[in-house]
Design a protein around this nucleic acid. Structure first.
Length: 415
DNA sequence: AATCCACAGGAAGCCCGGGAAC
DNA sequence: GTTCCCGGGCTTCCTGTGGATT
């Protein structure tokens, strides 16, 4: 590309481009002034949390619904308004938002909470109990209302099976003479409640708010509202908008997905210098979004998962059927030997296969062959060439991509 | 009805690297 | 320094199981 060409691109962006007026409006963490089709949830949350304004303790609250149904944004929205109101009237009200999955562990969640109360704590090294004590004393000395949002709270429970942190948090008010905390748990796993300690559940679930998936029409409204200010007028084709809504509704009524589609479609149109965003751009965007997801997933895989994935791919190459755990493990060992890597145990490999399944890189499902045992049938969940493309830059496994496994294959199966 | 395969997947515990407290 | 704790990745050992075969 010529230097003038590059300059032109920069200029174009500086002038706002011909498509976007403000692309930030299409980011899913953008907080719009209104949230269409979520009035009911907003009112529910608002009425449950309102007592916090008068320093009265509020009921704990549990919000659930699938990804992209607005749980997080509605909660943030309500808390934001609540806090504004509190400030207006000079009331003390603290809030904190923690994403449990991103935080990852009990320790880091509680450490985050301490910090948001202005209590600095080391990011590791202390006993969790010690942290809880510090948290408690911070609350006590502050003596105010403290609303805590625990987003993706299911990650906290499933991982360790140890819900003692949640238990402690729900009990914490009992030991406070001054100040209290209110918990707002958010989960996109509907039956995560089943794993919960009943004592925790009864406390956390004092109130429940359900977020249903958006319908295609509702998604349309959401997109429409944002698009109005995100795009220059006349740029966005009505059909393209409808298609974004319909595609996302087909997923899980996922607003996040809808916004991504629209943004990417517009970027594609912009890059190809077209002045209108149309349906073909949306379709292209859908492929790109999917492709990006896969590339992203593949590029972050650790060594043994990569070898496993290659094993599955090799098996699929040498015969057309899906493979079972034993076969995959055999090929895996062979590849490890070829690459001078110490192989993991089958137990561990089984776990890794499950992880890859959850990521969508593999499809694994448990089947029984009666007399011939119970196992998992495993297929590649992405295209083989994506794997090849993604791993060919990896020194460690590049050689294995063309390695032909000689392992024996067992019973012929079909899925 | 009993057997038995080829694993699934739970439980416990090891080891390591991180760090705090004393 | 020593001693403590935490979490992640792993192994070892184990019990459980759907359904074809006996």
């Amino acid at each position: 590309m010529s230097q003038q060409g590059l300059d032109l691109i920069f200029e174009r962006v500086l002038s706002g481009g011909e498509v976007f007026r403000d692309r930030n409006l299409l980011r899913h963490d953008y907080m719009p002034a209104t949230l269409p089709h979520r009035g009911e949830q907003i009112r529910r949350l608002g009425s449950v949390l309102a007592p916090a304004l008068t320093k009265d303790r509020v009921s704990n609250l549990f919000a659930y619904g699938k990804t992209g149904t607005g749980k997080t944004i509605v909660t943030k929205f309500v808390l934001d308004r609540l806090q504004r109101k509190a400030r207006e009237h000079g009331r003390a009200l603290d809030t904190s938002y923690v994403n449990c999955r991103l935080a990852g562990t009990n320790y880091r969640v509680i450490a985050d909470l301490c910090r948001s109360l202005g209590r600095e704590v080391p990011f590791t090294g202390l006993a969790v109990g010690e942290l809880l004590d510090r948290f408690r004393s911070a609350l006590q000395s502050r003596g105010s209302a403290f609303l805590v949002v625990l987003d993706e709270i299911d990650a906290l429970v499933k991982r360790s099976e140890d819900d003692s942190l949640l238990y402690e948090l729900t009990r914490i008010n009992e030991k406070l003479t001054d100040g209290w905390i209110g918990l707002i748990g958010i989960s996109n796993d509907l039956h995560f409640k089943d794993f919960l300690d009943p004592r925790v559940l009864s406390s956390l679930g004092e109130e429940e708010v359900v977020f249903k998936p958006y319908t295609s029409d509702e998604l349309y409204d959401i997109l429409k509202e944002r698009a109005e200010f995100a795009f220059r007028s006349g740029v966005l084709d009505e059909g393209a908008l409808r298609l974004c809504a319909a595609l996302a509704a087909g997923e899980h009524g996922d607003a996040r997905r809808a916004l991504d589609l629209l943004r990417v479609a517009a970027e594609i149109a912009e890059r190809s210098r077209e002045l209108k965003v149309e349906e073909n751009h949306v379709r292209e965007a859908q492929q790109k979004v999917e492709h990006d997801r896969v590339t992203e997933a593949l590029s972050s895989l650790p060594l043994h998962s990569r070898i496993l994935l290659i094993s599955v791919m090799q098996l699929e190459n040498t015969r057309r059927e899906s493979s079972v755990t034993g076969d995959v493990y055999e090929v895996y060992r062979e590849l490890c030997a070829a690459g001078s890597v110490e192989p993991l145990t089958q137990r561990r490999v089984s776990g890794l296969l499950n992880e890859l399944d959850i990521m969508g890189v593999l499809n694994a499902r448990v089947v029984s062959f009666g007399r011939y045992g119970r196992t998992k049938k495993i297929r590649l969940g992405v295209e083989a060439r994506s794997v090849t493309a993604s791993f060919s830059g990896d020194e460690m496994v590049r050689g294995l991509l063309s390695y032909a496994p000689r392992s024996v294959l067992r019973h012929q199966t079909s899925l």
